[in-house]
Computed example of a mutant assay.
Amino acid sequence: MAQPQPQNVFAPWADPAEKPLIRFEGVTKRFGDFVAVDDLNLDIYEREFFALLGPSGCGKTTLMRMLAGFENPSEGNIWIGGQNMKGIPPNRRPVNMMFQSYALFPHLTVWDNIAFGLRREGMDKDRMRVRVDEMLRLSRLEKFAGRKPHQISGGQRQRVALARSLAKAPKLLLLDEPLGALDKKLRQDTQFELMDIQEKTGTTFVIVTHDQEEAMTVASRVAVMDHGKLVQVATPAHIYEAPETVYVADFIGDVNIIEGTVIPAQGNRVDITYAEGKPPIRAATDKTLVPGQRVSFAVRPEKILVSREMATERTNAVKGRIEDIAYLGNISTYHVRLDSGHLVSAQMTNRNRLERREFTWEDEVWLSWTETAGIVLTE
């Protein structure tokens, strides 16, 4: 049963009374013998910023192309706003698509690029002028209205393409790797601009990306895909903190995964033996496990404390030697080789200046974490 949500939390997927804007119903797409999308079911709701995330070849772009109408499902149905999209061409769908290349017309000004679709639809000049000016304000491009695409920056071109896509007020905007051409700093800035514009317009955004950080930043929910199937669909926080499989845990962010065997423990705790002669890992879990069952224990580097002395107040403590250090400015990542032979990553905030760093290469250290810091995975 869905739990009631606080009024200020946007979570239509948790409300059984909410009807999805988009529904994939048993959708399969084959190219010859290759199955790109495999019997997929998915609901996406109005005003969501939804991310399709996965490695190259996982089926996410094929899924988006079917939504846009550029590909037809081999089996199953796609619904938008309660209407079956079977046989409906791209130009008759309440959808617009923004490509990675932006596809701006180099000979037209920013203003005319945004107006292009409205002009083709035959919108009268006064309404068109109001709508384009509104899009310029929304995307903060008023000063650049008279410039050509080659006279503005990559981030500004990205906003022109976005404004042009939104000018026709589609119910749904599809974004195919929209920030891939931008450098990292500009990409991070533009992610927040995208979120702001999406919130102001109320348009449903579906973004395809292979960038985990991008999906986690912008999306209300993330669908992690692999080999044409949905592996997990959840909020970014849930995907990160409570992955359902080793694949999801390993794909999203950095993680340590240690394989072991379940031994009996009391209550909602489990002990996992992972190396001969070493104390077991103790973890909290609500899964039903049996003695002797093989499991994986996943713990994020930032959940692990690095210390000179054994941290007796933490349930789990292991000893090792620092093999490598990655200095990332605000944090440092320590790669520690345990006595058992496992290599474990731990992250610590750099509170002191570099010359006063507490740990260095070849230091013997203790790694420790609480029993709730990690998660037990069975698949």
Rank of each mutant, 00 (worst) to 15 (best):
K287C: 04
T235R: 02
T261I: 04
E302L: 00
N268G: 15
E244G: 08
N256Y: 08
V270N: 03
T245D: 11
F297Y: 05
D286I: 03
L305P: 14
I258D: 09
V246G: 08
Q266L: 05
A284G: 13
P301G: 15
G292S: 10
A284F: 11
Y247W: 13
V306L: 08
I263S: 07
V246N: 10
E309T: 05
Y240R: 03
H238N: 12
I239Y: 12
G260M: 11
F251N: 01
I257P: 12
A283Q: 04
V262R: 02
T261Y: 06
H238Y: 15
D250K: 07
G277H: 02
V233A: 04
P279V: 06
I257K: 06
P279T: 09
V295P: 14
D254K: 13
R294H: 13
P236S: 03
V246D: 15
P279D: 12
A298I: 10
Q232C: 07
V290C: 03
A242I: 13
R269K: 05
R314T: 12
S307R: 11
K287N: 09
P279K: 00
V306T: 04
M310H: 11
E309V: 03
T288H: 14
A284W: 12
V255S: 14
T312H: 15
E276F: 08
V306R: 00
P280H: 07
